[in-house]
Each structure stands twice: as C-alpha cells, then as structure tokens.
C-alpha cells in the first residue's frame, strides 16, 4: 500500500490521493493525534467526522504540510508531503479552520495573492479569479476589504484561494461552518463538480447529516485515532451515521439538569 517515494509513479491500481501513516502529534503531555493511519482514495468525496478535540484539525494540518508531525508520513498522490514539500504543494488545496487570511486585501485581491504566491501567470489568475467570485456569489462584495466580510464570506473567499491553482486534492477543515444554506449549496455544487472531474475532496465536519448527504467515504476519528473508515455504507453498517457515530464514540451522556435555568426563577 505504501508507495515508494518519488514523482509520478505509474497509475497502478487505485493509488490513494492522500495516504497517512502513523501520524503522531503531541502538545506537551497531551497527545492530539496518536498514530493515525488513513487512506483517502483518489476521486472520493471523503468526510472526516469526530467529536470536539478529536484531532481532526491537527491531522488535516499535518496532512497538508502546515504542521510538522512528531512521527509518521503523508503522501499526496505518491509525493511525500514532508520530504518533497515543493512538489506536494501544487497538488494540494487547503482551507484551514481558525487561521486568518490577509484581511487588509479585498476578496479579489486575496485570490490574486494566493495565485501569485504560487507563481501563476496573471492572465490565468484574472480569469479564474472572476470565475470563482461569480461561482461563490462574492462579486458584489468585490471592493470590500476581507476584514469587513462576515464569517461565512471569509470562509468562501478562503475556499476560492484554495481552488485558484486547480489542485488535485482539496483538504477543507469545517468548510460549511458559518456558511448560509444558499452558499452551502453553491459550495457543494463546486465540490461535486470537482470530484466528478476526477479530483479528491477531504472535508472535516461535525454535522453528520451534511457528511451523510455529500460524502461517499467517511472516517470517524476520536482521541487521535481512526475508529472506523471506509465507504459511507460500510461505516454506517445499516444504521444512520449519527447513531453509528454515537455508538462508536461511547454512548450518550446523561445530561445533568440545570434546574435553575428558567426564565421565571431568580
């Protein structure tokens, strides 16, 4: 399964778009990711679900070259992300969660900036920038600084930045957080088109219904490990994803009652 290091190995069998092996990350004494293995098949629409603090963001950051793993390897289409970062970077489009963007630029400028950082020619950037703005319905906000954008608009512009260089694998951390339903539909259409054209999408979320509706593969992550992974139907095993998830994570907790939390009491 592990592919040899080096560029463009011949496409034998379905080689995974993203392959993580033994990923470990510790913060002091806390182990955020504890030896995680995961293969994302090429052309899949992959959902990573897990409770808060499961290590989703840490894992995706290590998979995309943003966070140095303490141990383990990551390959994107056979290229080692940490040994050949400059070869891996063009293959990956990243939407991190909780990181800022250069918000003193306008939306269009930010997309151009993302393209220029990757050394793209101006004509290509200009055309794609305008396409992306139209597709994400950001053209009306074109002259506003990103600092003045709402949270959902910022998410959309960051997604545009992840797409501008036409990567082969898109890794999106919580792409639908704070995004309104209309925009979510637009984003979903874009992502589905990308997968239909042979691209791979990996996204994290804790909204089960959303993952169930969009993704064909899913991995359940908790405590820095993969509890279950595979096609959506295999993981669900006849239940709905939410039930299965709760079953895997360890049952519902009895909720302690806040008896004083009543509008009438004082």
């Amino acid at each position: 399964m592990t592919s040899p290091d080096g560029p463009a190995e011949p496409a034998r069998a379905p080689s995974p778009a993203l392959s993580m092996r033994g990923l470990v990350k510790r913060y002091g004494r806390t182990v955020a990711v504890a030896g995680l293995d995961l293969d994302i098949p090429a052309g899949s629409f992959y959902g990573v679900v897990g409770p808060n603090g499961a290590g989703k963001t840490t894992t995706l950051s290590m998979a995309t070259g943003l966070l140095v793993p303490d141990a383990g390897t990551v390959h994107v289409h056979g290229v080692d992300v940490w040994r050949h970062p400059t070869a891996a970077a063009p293959l990956l489009g990243v939407l991190p969660d909780g990181l800022r963007v250069f918000d003193r630029l306008t939306g269009p400028e930010l997309i151009s900036y993302a393209g220029l950082l990757r050394g793209m020619p101006r004509g290509v950037i200009e055309a794609r920038r305008d396409d992306l703005l139209r597709a994400l319905d950001l053209t009306p906000a074109g002259a506003t600084l990103v600092a003045d954008y709402s949270a959902g608009m910022t998410k959309k512009i960051a997604l545009a930045c992840a797409l501008v260089h036409a990567p082969r694998v898109l890794v999106l951390d919580e792409p639908f957080e704070a995004v309104d339903p209309v925009s979510a539909t637009a984003i979903r259409r874009i992502l589905q088109g990308f997968v239909a054209a042979g691209g791979t999408v990996v996204l994290s979320s804790h909204v089960m219904a959303l993952v169930e509706r969009m993704c064909d593969h899913v991995a359940v992550v908790a405590g820095g490990r993969v509890l279950a992974a595979g096609t959506l139907d295999a993981v669900r095993a006849g239940q709905d994803l939410e039930q299965r998830f709760v079953g895997l994570i360890g049952g519902e907790q009895a909720d302690p009652e806040l008896t004083w939390l009543r509008p009438s009491s004082d």
């Binding site: 070259g65 400059t86 990956l92 990181l99 800022r100």
Partner: peptide, 14 residues
C-alpha cells in the same frame, strides 16, 4: 505581523 495568515505562504511553499 502576518499572524496565522502566514499559512498562505506555507501552503503555497513560497
């Protein structure tokens, strides 16, 4: 001064 927006440079491997 870039703060976490610096990720754009890292991700693009400028």
């Amino acid at each position: 001064y870039d703060g976490s927006a610096f990720w754009m440079h890292v991700s693009a491997r400028v």
